[in-house]
Amino acid sequence: MSVLQVNALSKNFGNIQALDQVSFEVPQGSVFGILGPNGSGKTTLLGIVTEVLKASAGNFLWFGKVASATIRKQIGTLLETPNFYPYLSGYDNLLLRQKIHQRGSLKDIQEVLEVVKLSERAKSPAKTYSLGMKQRLAIAASLLGKPQVLILDEPTNGLDPAGIVEIRDLILELREQNYTIILASHLLDEVEKVCTHTAILKQGKLLSYGKVDEILGKGLTIEIASSSLTELANFLQNKFPQATIKKENEVLQLVIETDSINLASLNQSCFENGIILHHLALRRKTLETAFLELTEN
């Protein structure tokens, strides 16, 4: 089941084409990453599906229906840098938002603080929170009312490494609690670590979307070297006739279209053919590699 269907969405700001007929579906229970460099249309897309912006063309459906007040209550959003009243406690900031937006109850406030691991600091002024804690408090605010879907725009932006890890772990925990999470990011490594699905945008166009492992596809790169690279290259080409072999800095890059390979067996095979290896390492294809392949043209 899809929680969100995006159908040929386009958006123009004057002569600027921010989105150009973008279409995809977000499966229920997924962590769906909208990936692209700054200016690719990520925030514009999220603005449209949350009704902050109006599309120039196309449409979108939530849970198979046009957005309504009832459906909006099933969607929690964090689209901007979180702003809180610095002298109010984390709890009181959430209480204020709960009253203004009429989402959730007093019991919900306690629950969401526990989910984001801020219960012990609930009574501390927001000005004493680190950036990571403020981001977790903002996610807590988006959880008020127990929505089914969370939309997070650049949730790790500006955070230090420790803060990034905190938000990454929280996203994974929320997925285990059956939330569907849609997040926009330009950090490929973070998307690869938390997302099950992704859509890749460039200059408003959708280049690819689907499961992360499908976008990565099959393919391993093995770094391998010996005292005689020519002899080693000939051996590898005979052993793996379909593989691609490249030389970089006195190391051969063996690219094979497969899911796995036994490096111990490869080392043994080389040894039995009189080739002594002094370097052997496996390099899996990353989302960064796939992204560059899609966007370099």
Rank of each mutant, 00 (worst) to 15 (best):
V52S: 04
G64P: 08
G104R: 06
L282S: 12
G64Y: 07
L206W: 01
K239S: 13
G90F: 06
N273F: 08
A67V: 08
M1A: 08
E231H: 12
D92G: 01
L187K: 08
I16A: 11
E250I: 03
F235R: 02
Q268I: 08
V194W: 01
I215F: 08
Q110G: 15
G217R: 04
G14C: 11
N238M: 15
H197A: 06
L131M: 12
V3A: 02
S23P: 00
V116A: 12
L254A: 11
D189K: 14
I200E: 12
G47V: 10
D213A: 12
L150F: 03
Q102P: 00
L96W: 09
Q98N: 03
T128C: 02
K285A: 13
E288V: 07
E173M: 04
L207R: 05
N93P: 03
T258C: 10
D153I: 03
T77A: 06
T70W: 00
A69Q: 08
Y85W: 11
I222L: 13
L35N: 13
L292E: 07
K127Q: 13
V3T: 03
V112D: 14
R97P: 00
G41D: 08
H186Q: 12
L236F: 10
K211R: 15
G58E: 02
E288P: 06
E257N: 15
A122S: 14
